[in-house]
Design a protein around this nucleic acid. Structure first.
Length: 114
DNA sequence: TCCCTGACTGGTT
DNA sequence: AAACCAGCCAGGG
C-alpha cells in the first residue's frame, strides 16, 4: 500500500526532493544518498510511486535515473508527462530523450547553490 | 516471519 | 551504445 507516511525513510526522501531547485534534475541514487540511504535508489523510486495528492508539493518530476532519462513505468504516458513538466522548467532533452546530467544534474556538491 | 516485487545502479558482455 | 545480470532496501500480503 501507499506507505507515504509509514516509513521514516520516505519522509527524508521527500524532504530531499523538495530541495531540488526548479530547472534541475537529480538521480535516484543521489536522492537516496542525501536521504541517508546509500543503496536505496530503488526505495526512492518506490517512495515516489507512493506519492499521493497530499504530497503534490514534492517535485517528483525532477527525479530521473542515472542514464539521464525518465524511468519508464507501466504507463508510458506518465513518463511523457514528466518530460513535459521538465521542459516547461527549462530542462533540455537531447534527441534520444536524455538530459545532460553534467549540466542539469543536482548533487550534494550543489546543495549550497540556490 | 518468509517471500515477492519494484519510478534503480554499476559492472559485464 | 544497448542488452544482461546480480546486488540492494523497504513495504505489503
Amino acid at each position: 500500500m501507499k506507505a507515504s507516511r509509514g516509513g521514516e525513510a520516505y519522509a527524508r526522501i521527500y524532504s530531499v526532493v523538495r530541495r531540488v531547485p526548479r530547472g534541475r534534475v537529480v538521480t535516484y541514487g543521489a536522492v537516496a544518498r542525501l536521504a541517508g540511504v546509500p543503496r536505496g535508489a530503488r526505495q526512492v523510486g518506490y517512495a515516489l510511486h507512493a506519492l499521493a495528492e497530499a504530497d503534490r508539493d514534492v517535485p517528483w518530476q525532477r527525479v530521473i535515473n542515472a542514464k539521464g532519462e525518465v524511468s519508464p513505468r507501466g504507463e508510458a504516458d506518465w513518463a511523457s508527462l514528466q518530460r513535459s513538466m521538465l521542459i516547461a522548467e527549462g530542462v533540455v532533452f537531447d534527441q534520444k530523450g536524455r538530459v545532460d546530467l553534467t549540466i542539469y544534474g543536482w548533487s550534494d556538491a550543489l546543495v549550497n547553490e540556490v
